[in-house]
Amino acid sequence: MGAFADAARSAWGLIATGDAALLDIVGLSLAVSLSAVACATVVGLPLGAALAIGRFPGRRAIVILLNALMGLPPVVVGLAVYLMLSRAGPLGAFGLLFTPGAMVIAQTILVLPIIAALCRQAVDDAWAEYEEQLRSLGASGFGAALTLVWDIRFSLLTAILAGLGRASAEVGAVMIVGGNIDGVTRVMTTAIALETSKGDLPLALALGGVLILLVIALNAVAHVVKDAAQRRYG
């Protein structure tokens, strides 16, 4: 217990003084994960809505696949993206491997199924409620889907948050495609893994604390927004 207390005290020192190395790592973590979630949201929400409202052959199979992909192992995604981006790979020419860009790609692939699948579920439920009314008013197809997604936008926040949770917490994918290079691709999770194995427990613990606080803060903000919206719009 003494070791933990020492580590916690040093960790607090690092956070309180705004240690530059710590801030860099936190900043890059946020940049990578938020970018990945933004990309996955732009693709995932329309995809989920289309799967909920559209009626086309193979829809059920795609829905089942999407639900299964929510549990994609990060290291496997990391490996696949690594193979695509490596010098000999099909996308090797872009020279993205071991850059933050590669990490964004890997996390986008991880998060996309989560956001799309949760969005599909939410839109599916809402469609059951709205369909007759919207058709009666003469709204159909793309226009109706847009109305629906906009009307449940605050529920979709939950899907996006689930994606963000996944992105900020995973270590396997960013480790493989980013390489955990100091000052270039080192993020909170990879740094925690490294510092722990090196024995620098204060830095690892400080990073762990910041990671948890950030996740709580983001969720709290989202919760407050959702709550206020609920009271405002019912």
């Binding site: 007759e132 009314q133 008013l137 109305t147 009307d151 449940i152 719009y233 019912g234």
Partner: peptide
């Protein structure tokens, strides 16, 4: 033609 349902479905606006 228009229709009013048993339970109105109103948009969040």
């Amino acid at each position: 033609q228009a229709m009013v349902f048993q339970r109105p479905v109103l948009l969040r606006r």
